[in-house]
Design a protein around this nucleic acid. Structure first.
Lengths: 214, 214
DNA sequence: ATGTTTTTGTGAAAAAAATAACAAAACCCC
DNA sequence: GGGGTTTTGTTATTTTTTTCACAAAAACAT
């Protein structure tokens, strides 16, 4: 898929812009934004160019307009309801996490197979897994978050797809197979940490070698 | 940085291999592995080639050997201790998450500014933030996980770096500035979900347009 | 007004990543 | 042991992503 990275960066720009706005900026230049998210100014302008966002020569970009534009592209004004499946460590934390709401994403319910964890009166209700399909269908849910163990992740995904879910964020450390009409995005926490370990080890090794060569 | 993606895939291969091994495989071919993590067989062989991993023509790869090799490259046998800063939703969930231990990563302690959340006798002790620097130094910690709010993330990172941390996994939705001797990897949960939303919307839009053109 | 500066927008160039292609090795079968 | 088959390893090709570079527009100064 083309421009995949650009889309991710658009979200980052939006984030940074919100921050910059509260700091009192009304206008912004490509190099401010670049600095804020750690890319080159060219990259910022190229990304905007791809999505038809334009500013003013010498005047930069009007922050409000820019945020509005980004929200349109990123679908702020479309589907925003999601469910979480799995009320373990990760699932429960995500349900309580306030970052989603800030961005207009509403977690409507959590589903869990263990009856002891069910509590339908909670702020975000934890319902039994058996109710998931019906819930998705009656509430027209399109986005699902999978936070169940590796062993049941594929099964959960299959049920979600069957019920009409079109996009999934998967925390189980396994590749899931989905039909092409459903997007799956993976977050693998162990992998992310291992990656940090790998590159920090590499850095240390390089530093040591550099020392020897003095 | 070159080959950044290859390293990430190596972790994925390792993951898949463990699974394949429990399924009874002793040997594996590039196309099995490719299928398991969702890339092309060429990609698998290319990745291995880059890191000097070789198999047997027609015989594929010996799983045990391959895992061993990957572990070496990914530093399974070096630094593996880490701390978490922030005992909020995310921090607490990560501390309890058993995925790290399975991969030989040990979370030694959690640090938290709120005295009410401190509990030094827990399985993974939750200590007061003031003790962080000393802990890092006396235990020679190199890896830190930041799970504090956006507003204090940079401050935490600075302290970590000062104390000797060389690699950081950051969950705060903000770009952190670190000196070049410290690697920072970001996980932005909202962004990941927004990305799913964007691409699933795109898919739905495409599907609708395709319908019109029939 | 005119020149100077700043900053965008984009097409061209470079770099990086992914894919394809295929020779060479290893195995199998007869 | 020769011919056919499978699978690696690597080089070549293609695609994608990022960076560069600069003309054109806007703002400012004088």
């Amino acid at each position: 898929m083309k421009n995949k990275n650009s889309v991710i960066r658009l979200s980052r720009y939006k984030n940074a812009l919100r921050r910059l706005k509260t700091m009192g900026f009304a206008r912004i230049f490509s190099d401010n934004l670049a600095d804020a998210i750690g890319v080159t100014p060219s990259q910022v302008r190229k990304d905007f160019s791809i999505f038809g966002i334009s500013g003013n020569k010498r005047g930069g970009y009007q922050i409000d307009e820019l945020i509005e534009h980004l929200n349109n592209i990123l679908g702020k004004n479309t589907i925003k309801h999601a469910i979480i499946v799995g009320a373990g460590n990760i699932g429960a934390a995500l349900a309580k996490y306030d970052g989603f709401e800030k961005d207009g994403i509403k977690i409507d319910a959590v589903f869990e197979a263990d009856p002891l964890k069910v509590s339908s009166q909670a702020v975000i209700p934890v319902l039994h897994a058996d109710q998931m399909i019906e819930f998705i269908q009656t509430n027209d849910i399109r986005i699902g978050i999978i936070a169940v163990p590796e062993s049941s992740a594929q099964q959960v995904l299959d049920l979600m797809v069957l019920s009409g879910v079109k996009g999934v964020l998967n925390f189980a450390p396994i590749r899931l197979r989905a039909p092409k009409e459903c997007v799956v995005n993976n977050v693998n926490l162990v992998l992310e940490l291992e990656n940090v370990i790998y590159f920090s080890n590499l850095l240390e090794k390089e530093a040591q070698e550099a020392e020897i060569n003095i």
